[in-house]
Nucleic acid binder design. Structure first.
Lengths: 224, 224
DNA sequence: CGTTATGTGACGCGATGGTGACATCCGCCC
DNA sequence: GGGCGGATGTCACCATCGCGTCACATAACG
């Protein structure tokens, strides 16, 4: 079982004490005013609260961002009130996102699980899994819910790139360079054709149409 | 080589004259009492000093914040003394940050470099949450209580704007400029149509009708 | 009940994307 | 070498979409 690391500042920790000691799958840790009180393996999810009338929260955010050991972490700023200036400042201080407190168990866990599923893949190089999609790098073969997807080389690369960047809008430009086609320069509209061909392949393998067009921007691979 | 833009108010500029003319990698520019004296490409780091017994510093802060061209800039207020009230006022006026003067070369450069490194590699998966509404800026997708909301680009922008200004009456004029549609001038009544379309989209995603009409003023996004 | 503000279906224009057809290119086999 | 077949980039056509406007219906207000 994967262990998920969550850091909470003291105040939030108190609020959530009932489940801090309860969950097994998660590592909860307290965050002192001088930084994380313990180190963990792997990426962590940090919730920093605002702390009224003081920069403490922002300052903490900045330090975490600067801290090499926490490089991969996802920092969520917990605002006290829904103030527009506060939000801006939170993001500027390096928060990855924000939400308005107070927090409860469900919110924290939902948020963490959502983020988790986004960043899942990355590690295994031979076999990538994204929900119903399995990409076998060794066999250069993809399956959707067990069903093999008939792909030509370029489509395979495209699908892989989409899967590795699921739930993110990818511009045509990014897709072109993502597939390593700089030379000769490729017409952006060609991406439309790639996507069309990939869609057809996915469809005949029984996947619906997970590739959503975002008008005038690009395409997203929607993964629930 | 990346060029970093730094604005200093006159007083600070004088203090720091020795290195204003010295560094190559930085663009230093003076900030007159009427605003930036020159425009630069890209985000800038602005240091505004407090100016004893006067609101000038705060006023400047406010103006910079309102200035479209400086939208991405980071404003640091330089306090004369470490007063809690002053801090609050600085932040309220839109400063991103403050520090206590007088400044020296090292402090300015350290601060700027720190901010710089923060802003580079961020590919923030910004996920904004407002009660049951989740706006995923990366996937350009909104969900209401988990249910995806089918939105066209303009509606997405509109919803985001509403959410970020929840519980505040927004005039049609503000909505138009908030979505960045200055050119060509838009008929105010068009906003009614936008709202109508957004309402329909929200409704078919199972949200009720969180957009309330305020007769002869505009619309509010009612949250909680 | 008159007046003013808002809701909304319909329309049309420009922009944008989907797609079949075609031209190239490349590797392979005889 | 020549011929073949699959893969892929490009093009052009056209369906579709997004969106601003208008016109009329409806609602709110005093």
């Amino acid at each position: 079982m994967t262990v998920i690391n969550i850091f909470l500042t003291d105040e939030l920790g108190e609020t959530l004490d009932d489940f801090v000691h309860d969950e097994r799958r998660f590592t909860f840790a307290r965050l002192g005013s001088d930084g994380p009180r313990q180190l963990v393996e792997g990426p962590a999810y940090v919730f920093v609260d605002w702390v009224m009338d003081d920069m403490a929260g922002l300052e903490m955010c900045r330090r975490l961002r600067a801290d090499q050991r926490m490089g991969d972490s996802h920092v969520t700023m917990v605002l006290e009130s829904d103030d527009i200036e506060d939000r801006r400042r939170a993001l500027k201080a390096g928060a990855d996102d924000y939400l308005v407190g107070p927090l409860d168990r469900t919110t924290v866990l939902d948020r963490v699980l959502a983020l988790q599923s986004e960043r899942q893949p990355r590690h295994a190089t031979q076999r990538l899994e994204f929900g119903p999609l399995v990409i076998d790098m060794a066999a250069l073969q993809a399956r959707w819910a067990g069903e093999p997807v008939q792909l030509r080389p370029n489509e395979f690369r495209l699908l892989r790139y989409f899967a590795e960047n699921a739930n993110r809008v990818l511009s045509r430009e990014e897709l072109i360079s993502g597939l390593g086609k700089q030379e000769p320069p490729i017409d952006e509209r060609t991406v439309d054709v790639w996507v069309g061909r990939l869609r057809r392949a996915l469809k005949s393998a029984g996947a619906g149409n997970p590739l959503r067009t975002v008008r005038s921007l690009g395409y997203v691979f929607d993964l629930v």
